[in-house]
Every structure is written in C-alpha cells, then in structure tokens.
Write a protein that binds this DNA or RNA. Structure first.
Lengths: 222, 222
DNA sequence: TGTACCAGACTCCTCAGACAAGTAGACGAA
DNA sequence: TTCGTCTACTTGTCTGAGGAGTCTGGTACA
C-alpha cells in the first residue's frame, strides 16, 4: 500500500520525466519524444503530459518550441535553497554568513561612499532605539548588517545575505528570548566599532569585528 | 506592432498571474479565483490557465489542492542565479568566491579527516598531470579547490562553490589561453602550500593562501 | 549543378466539453 | 453542541478538434 496516490498524475508524470532526464536518457538540448508518444508511454492523457512538461519548464528543465518539439534545457532541477538551509542546520548557515559578511565588511571599508556611511549610521541609530522589543530588535539589527553589505557594492554578496538572514530570524528571536540580555551594552559597543572601522576604511578591523560578532552569535545559538 | 505574440498564451497568462501575485493582490496563502473564473478574466481557455498555474507551481509561486483551490505559496519567484551571475560581472563573482573559499579553507584546516586529505592530495596530483592541456587543467584545478571545500564539511559552502565555478570556467580558459603561462611553477607551489596548510591544521595560513590565490586570479582576469 | 520555392508531415498550442475525485460549508437530526 | 449527510464548488483527467509554426524532401528553374 503506497499512500493511495496522493499526488496528481501530472505531478507524477513530471517526476518520472525528470528522473529520465537525470538518468541521461536524453542529452542536453536533445529533443524528447512528442506529447502524443509520451502520453501512452506514461499511461496518461495528452493534457496531463502537457501540464507535466509545463511544470518542468517552470523549473527550467525543459523548453518547448512550437512546431519543433520539447527539448532538455538542464540535466537537473536546481535544488531549492530553502531545502538546503533547512537540512543544514543553524551552525552551517551562520558559518556561511560569516564567510559572506566578513568579506563584505572588508569590501565595504574600502568602497563605502558617504551615502553608504549615512545609511549605516542611520541603521545603527534605529537599532539603538529598538533595544527593548524583541522582534524589532532583531529586524533593526539585521538591517544594520545589511547596510554594511550594501556598502560592499557586490550584488552577489547582497543576494546571499538576503537568502540567509530570513532563515536565521526565528532562531535569533528564540535565542534572545531565552538569554534575556538582548541589547546588552557590549553588543552595542561592538556594532559601533564595526561601523567605525568601515568609516575609517580599516578593512582588516572590519573583517575581524564582523567575524567576532557572528562567532559569538553562533556560540550563543548552539 | 508588438512583436506579434512571440510567447505562447500559457506563458503570457503565467506572467500576468505572477505580476498580480507580486502586486500583492492576494496575501501569502490566500486562495486565488477558480480556474473557471480566471479563464475568461485572462481571455483564454481553461486548459491554458491550468498550464499557466502548473508553470508557476513549478517555480514555487502557487500550489493547487484538488477540491479546494489554488493558493499563493510565495510572493515572488526566486531569481535565477544564472541571471544574477551574468549581470554581476566576473570580478563580483570572484569576490564572492573569495568569501566562500577562504572561509572554507580555514574550516577545512580544522575539520579535515584523513579521507579528506587523501582526496585533496589525489586532486592535487591529478592537477599536476594536466598542466599542459587547457580545458582539463582548469577542470582539475577546480576539482582540487572543490576537494578543499568538501573538507570544510559545510553543505551550504559547497553548494555555493558549485554555483559559482561553472560561471568562471569559460573566463578562466580564455584567460589562460591569452596568458600562455598556464601551469606555471609558482602556481603549483602555492597550491602545494594550501594543501599543506590544511594538512597541518593551520587555519590562518589556509585562509590567507586561498585568498591570495584567488586575488591573483582576479587581477589576471581584469 | 545549384538554388529557390513549395507541399506535406509533424510538432506544439489552444479551445471546448464531459466526467471523476476531492473539499468545504450548510443543514438537519440526535 | 455534535455528528452525519447532502450539495455546490473546486481541481484533476481525458478526448476530440482545429490552428499555427517548423522541418524535410521533392521539384522546377536558372
């Protein structure tokens, strides 16, 4: 007994096709059999095959060209970052964030414009104002760190930062709730120091301060 | 005249629906109008609406539940890394790779197992064997660096490495073709040193050597 | 011999209609 | 209130038909 067909036929058909693509049955760019051939092969109707193909097209695996055929666009579906992050655990996420953010801090120290600096100062002040409320403390803290990544002027690092932080939000709120000493003074001082290093164009200090802050965060979360 | 309908109606419908989701017309998790309502609204048949919905389901924006309806699963489609990487330029990609790889090198120095070490040595030897041929030199070089990231035992860093390196492959081959001195001796020595630092559990040295290597690569590519 | 054109086969695209399968809310009985 | 049942509505699936684009091979012409 296998769960009594939970998934719709179209989803099943899509999964079968994806497996066949992964298995290397067709080369990259090669043409698949026509819908009219696949349908009886998979034991479903044409419209169902079409929906399966559309689904895989949305995932970037297949492309269709009217009058020509269906072609393999990628040999595998890209794994969802959500899945990777969930499977990996908090520590791995923070390690990745250390990698991204300490490098971004160093780059920010070299490249920050006056406008970047104003944004960082503003975020820091806002962070200071929300030291009491838990949720907004985490959010303003994240906003401060994001302002530094923005100042690094590297779109990839920024995208990575935005990918990782949502996953950490809940964990950080829980952690602060348990510790109770959120917004403690030494915390604020280290943030001041980081902003100062960026302002002073001291890349090495910015890198070290950023790393130290996140390392202590990791230690607190474990 | 507007390009005389290049895209299939199903793709157009999917794009319109995605825009309406992005615009906030429906909350996260909210139910969309039924297929029979959407079809005349979009001016297409029901099967076409279904294919549009399937496409967005494949992209993670919508989910369908038989008997219940279609629901918003995400407020936006995740941007393709390909697009980000293409738009960003080689320098930004290398900067991101520096962030990932130097941190991974440090972690690898702390965590490498004997098996990791053997894999690294083997990759290094293979790299040495392919110093003359351009393509395989780049590939074996990448394999060596990947072995180090593997030794860091962090799935996120590994996934990031795998995301970035394909984008750099073509650029590196071009660069080496122009320079002509691929596989030069100092290059090999620095790789030996990196492997040695990981073997000696010298995290700081591994981090520095990894950074230095990639920085020189960036300088050569610009 | 080589080129241009054309017809036909094949492909995906779109629609309409029908029925099955599942869900959720209304309604009434205990 | 609580529980079952019934009904309206939803998505799921299949079939048949025709439209539109693409590719191939043959044919006529230069």
């Amino acid at each position: 007994m296998t769960q009594a067909r939970r998934a719709p036929l179209a989803d099943q058909a899509a999964e079968i096709l994806l497996d066949r693509v992964r298995s290397g049955e067709w080369e990259l760019g090669e043409k698949l059999p026509g819908e009219t051939t696949l349908a009886p092969q998979l034991g479903v109707g044409r419209s169902t095959v079409r929906e399966a193909i559309r689904q895989l097209a949305g995932r970037g695996v297949l492309t269709t060209r009217q009058g020509s055929g269906v072609f393999v666009a990628a040999l595998d579906a890209p794994e969802e970052w959500d899945a990777i992050l969930t499977r990996s655990g908090i520590v791995a996420v923070i390690e990745a964030r250390i990698a991204i953010e300490s490098e971004a801090a160093a780059l920010a120290a070299e490249r920050r414009t006056p406008a970047d600096l104003r944004a960082i100062r503003r975020a820091l002040a806002l962070r200071e104002q929300h030291r009491t409320e838990l949720d907004s403390h985490v959010d303003t803290d994240t906003a401060f760190h994001r302002a530094i990544v923005v100042a690094a002027h590297n779109p990839i690092l920024l995208e990575l930062f935005d990918t990782f932080t949502p996953r950490l939000r809940a964990a950080m709120i829980d952690m602060l709730r348990l510790r109770g000493d959120h917004g403690a003074n030494p915390d604020h001082v280290s943030h001041e120091a980081l902003a100062g290093a960026v302002a002073d164009r001291d890349a090495a200090a910015a890198r070290a301060l950023s790393r130290a802050h996140l390392s202590s965060l990791a230690a607190a979360l474990v």
